[in-house]
Simulated scan of single mutants.
Amino acid sequence: MLKKFMAELIGTAVLVLFGCGAAVLGGEHVGQLGIALAFGFAIIAMAYSIGPVSGCHVNPAVSLAAFVAGKMSAKDMGVYWLAQFIGAVVGAFILASIAQAVPGEPVNLGQNGWGPGYLGEYPLMAAATFEVVMTAVFVVAILGVTGEKAHGPFAGIAIGITLAVIHIVGIQITGVSVNPARSFGPALLAGGEAMSQLWLFFVAPAVGAILGALLFRLKLLEPEM
């Protein structure tokens, strides 16, 4: 379990550092597509490096979905959650240490949000709907390609592409969370409005994860034998 803990911690840190780092340090140059690909490529890289150790959840919503689908114990889920949240803070801290140009001034760490002043200024309902639906889609993709009839070497690519497409669609809406840990790390260090809006990026991905996982738990997406 220690190996799984370390794998999830490192993997989540890398996801935050690469994905949010692309937005913060290179966003003006790579644009929305580049940021989306950074998140997707980070997942692909981690899937093939730490996947054999922990399954590369790097996302509390994914671990929750695995638990609801009957593929993970509550104890293991708790360990994964702890590792993921710590990893997200580590990744955000490394990014902050690079991006903080003027000590004491607020720094953009790619934190999630919604409403006036945030990217496309979408309202709360749009943000909540996007996060619930896209987390459910992401979970369906993950549980589908890693299930009993898994796609083996191609699973990591499929999951990474799914995450990239979700970002292409939704960066202007919420910055895209579908991952409470990814939201927590940057918000904790950025503070202010990011922390006041953090609740949505815990609740909506959790609801989406449960909905997606129930499709497998109830065998509604069970593959034919």
Rank of each mutant, 00 (worst) to 15 (best):
A69E: 00
A69N: 07
V68K: 10
S54V: 01
P103F: 06
M46I: 13
L95W: 05
S54T: 00
I44S: 01
G104I: 12
V58C: 04
P106N: 10
V89E: 02
L95Q: 03
K71Y: 03
I43P: 03
I50N: 01
P106H: 11
I98T: 09
V53W: 11
L82V: 14
G87Q: 01
V89N: 03
A88M: 02
S49I: 03
P52Q: 07
A88D: 04
K75Q: 15
I50G: 02
D76V: 11
G70Y: 12
A99Y: 02
I94C: 14
A96P: 04
Q100S: 15
Q100I: 14
G51R: 12
S63K: 14
F67L: 15
L95Y: 03
P60N: 05
C56W: 04
Y80S: 10
S63H: 12
Q100K: 15
I98V: 15
A65F: 08
I86G: 15
V68R: 12
V58Q: 06
V79I: 14
P103K: 01
A74H: 04
I44A: 07
I98W: 08
L64D: 03
A99Q: 00
V58E: 00
F93G: 07
M72Q: 07
P60S: 06
V102G: 13
S73I: 13
A69G: 03
A88L: 03
L95T: 04
G55H: 09
M77R: 05
G87P: 06
Q84R: 11
G78V: 10
A61K: 04
I44G: 01
V62K: 02
P103A: 07
A92F: 04
L64W: 00
S97D: 08
A74Y: 08
V102H: 15
L95H: 04
I44K: 05
K75P: 04
V79T: 10
G104C: 10
S63W: 12
I98S: 09
E105Y: 09
I94S: 12
P52D: 09
V89Q: 07
A45C: 08
E105R: 13
I44C: 11
G87Y: 03
Q84M: 09
V58A: 10
M72G: 01
Y48I: 08
G55L: 11
S97N: 13
G87C: 07
V79N: 06
Y80W: 09
A61R: 10
G51E: 11
H57A: 02
V53Q: 10
L64E: 00
F85M: 11
I94Q: 07
W81M: 14
L64T: 06
S54C: 02
V90F: 11
H57C: 03
M46L: 14
A101M: 14
G51A: 12
A83S: 12
Y80E: 10
S63R: 13
G78K: 10
N59Y: 00
L95D: 00
A92K: 01
C56H: 09
Q84D: 08
W81R: 12
N59I: 06
S97V: 08
I94N: 06
W81A: 12
A66Q: 15
A45L: 11
I50M: 09
M77E: 06
A66Y: 15
V89D: 00
V58T: 07
A83G: 06
N59R: 05
A101L: 14
S63E: 08
A45W: 04
Q100A: 14
A45I: 09
A74C: 07
M77C: 00
Y48K: 06
L64M: 07
V102K: 15
F93D: 01
I44D: 06
A96K: 15
L64K: 05
H57Q: 04
A47M: 14
F67T: 10
